[in-house]
Simulated assay, not measured.
Amino acid sequence: MRILHTMLRVGNLERSLAFYTEVLGMRLLRRHDYPEGRFTLAFVGYGAEADNAVIELTHNWDTPSYELGNAFGHIALEVADAYAACAEIKQRGGKVVREAGPMKHGKTVIAFVEDPDGYKVELIQK
């Protein structure tokens, strides 16, 4: 068994695709509209789905936004330099909600950014 993808419901697919591809540097791997169901699925990631876990962005055409609730935590990405990654993300228009620095009670350098729908993405320095 292996993890295939994590699904996030998004209110504005184009805005979310711009964030994940232009701000976080992922690639759009595939996208398909389902007119009868009034939804679109778009898969983004850093490598082919055959070899990597990816993110499925689900856009229900008639739902402009969602309540995130308090059960979901975050997606984590490994980065070479969390400080540089934050600077680059800000330069690309991304929102850093926790600047890079050592985690509480530890030494690992982390940061958090937020996608257009409010989902948190943790950056963990390698």
Rank of each mutant, 00 (worst) to 15 (best):
R92P: 07
V44A: 06
Q91K: 14
G37M: 11
E22L: 03
L29H: 06
Q125D: 13
E88N: 06
K120W: 14
M26R: 00
V44D: 05
E88G: 03
V44Y: 01
A111I: 10
E99P: 01
E56Y: 01
E49F: 02
I55Q: 00
V23W: 06
A82D: 02
Y66F: 04
K90S: 07
A50S: 14
T58M: 05
A100Y: 07
L68G: 10
A50Y: 14
H32I: 08
L8P: 01
A42H: 01
N12W: 05
I124L: 15
I3G: 14
V23H: 02
N12R: 11
L4H: 13
G45T: 06
G118C: 05
G25H: 12
V113H: 00
F39C: 07
R31N: 06
M26E: 02
E114S: 06
N70M: 13
V113C: 07
A87K: 10
A76M: 05
A76N: 07
N12F: 06
G106H: 12
R38S: 09
C86I: 05
G69F: 03
I75H: 09
M1S: 13
E78G: 15
D62A: 11
K95Q: 12
L28E: 07
G101M: 07
L29I: 11
L4D: 14
L68Y: 09
E22C: 02
V44M: 10
R31H: 07
N60G: 11
A111H: 03
R30D: 09
T63G: 11
D33R: 05
Y34T: 12
T21P: 06
M7V: 15
Y20W: 06
L29C: 03
G11Q: 03
Y34H: 10
A71N: 14
E49P: 03
D117Y: 04
I124C: 14
G106D: 08
G101L: 02
I124T: 15
G118W: 00
G47P: 10
K126E: 11
M7L: 13
P35F: 08
H32A: 12
K120S: 09
R27M: 11
K107Y: 10
F43D: 00
E67K: 13
E88C: 08
E122P: 04
R92C: 03
E114A: 09
